[in-house]
Amino acid sequence: MNTASSDLLTLVLGIFGVLIFASTIGYVLQQRFSANGPNAAVENLNARIKAWWVMVILIGIAFIAGRVGVLILFAFCSFAALREFITLINTRRADHWALASAFFIVLPIQYYLLWTKQYGIFAIFIPVYAFLLMPIISVLRGDTERFLLRIAEVQWALMICVFCVSHVPALLTLSIPGYEGRNVLLIAFLVIVVQLSDVLQYVWGKLFGRTKIAPNLSPSKTVEGFVGGVISATLIGASLSWITPFTPFQAGVLAFIITLMGFFGGLVMSAIKRDRGVKDWGNLIEGHGGLIDRLDSVVFSAPIFFHIVRYWWSLS
């Protein structure tokens, strides 16, 4: 067994340990508060923990399957996220072909470019080609009603759900000296830090939360949860430096940037939900809402993390 897979194994065992711990707490809480009739908060917590098991196992299978597995997993995430996003935006019949090509042409091409490791075109395909070609497809039908709004929303959907999400598997294309064959652990680092930061913000907020940080956007987020979550996720990031090419200090700084981006990403995506008058993006994941509800912080941190690592560590 090489070091990459033995590190991955250690990591997976650690995550399973955390989940078993969480499931035990969930079970105890259920026995105490939910035994005689359901307690909404505890039921939701347990649904979330169960969904975590499923998500961890899915990501684990993708990692075992290697590059193909990871690409397929994130292509599917992009598809499901784009479906949730487009469901909530203003579209008209004139956008039909533009939307169909977003799903069935732009999305597959973006992941194909990752598969063939063509970084140059991968980085500009959606910001340049899709950006210019999609409005052309829409305009051909001659419907000008709310035109700017419609094309802007479709472009935003593509940027968030396809472009940004694809930067998670893009970490596999980096070539970092001394880190060959271990890039999948960079994905693990990013996803673990972002998701733990979300969970820890929730836990710190539930335990000590007093002051609302953004009452208009997200009534459940508190200053105490934010500070506690960011600090603890940064420390966890630093302690995970053994799976990364970074020193503990560097890993901590990157984790700090990731958690900040994730937090503000969550706020931006909440604002969009408020604007559209919905509470969740969808119902794909029991207890969590839609896929975007789980992915919002990853979406905002992945491209920044990718580019920082690419700029300072990668040769390609």
């Binding site: 598809f79 479906r83 469901t87 019949r93 039909h96 939307l99 799903f103 069935f104 969808g282």
Partner: peptide, 18 residues
């Protein structure tokens, strides 16, 4: 709800929507 947006009249390719 929403199926009319998935495949409006006269279109042959469905758009994935919830």
């Amino acid at each position: 709800n929403n199926l009319n947006r998935v495949m409006p009249k006269g279109e042959i390719v469905p758009i994935p929507l919830i």
